[in-house]
Design a protein around this nucleic acid. Structure first.
Length: 109
DNA sequence: AAACTGACTTCTC
DNA sequence: GGAGAAGCCAGTT
């Protein structure tokens, strides 16, 4: 087996918890979150969690972007566009339509 | 209830 | 280094 569930939390909860820790003005990638949560290949699942996220205001899902910095989705209204504006407003640097991960990538560990 | 689909990433050739 | 396949979890159909 697999390693035990962290604090009895399901993978899903770990993802949410990790996402919540993303500081303002920073962005994280799906894969990064998945990795921190324990499943390096569950990036897709992470995206799904955001999509159906039951903690909309609690989990800053707008701070989650694709590996290349592209904003691949946003369920709330305004869509990608709005998400981008929000991030910019938080201080995240953008390079065209993609977040500048070089500068704004959340470095957790 | 089973199969498909999706806000993705990593590994291999 | 570009292209293809595999892998992950849960919501929808």
């Amino acid at each position: 087996m697999v390693h035990l569930n962290y604090m009895g939390l399901s993978f899903k909860d770990r993802v949410y918890r990790t996402t919540k820790k993303i500081p303002r003005g920073r962005v994280a990638t799906y894969g990064q979150i998945a990795r921190l949560a324990g499943n390096p290949h569950a990036a897709r699942a992470v995206g799904l969690f955001m999509k159906t996220n039951p903690h909309a205001p609690i989990v800053p899902c707008h701070r989650v972007v694709a590996l290349n910095g592209a904003l691949t989705g946003y369920s709330a209204k305004g869509g990608i566009k709005k998400k981008k504006e929000m991030l910019i407003r938080e201080g995240v640097k953008f390079r065209g339509d993609r977040a500048d991960l070089k500068v704004s990538r959340w470095k957790a560990r």
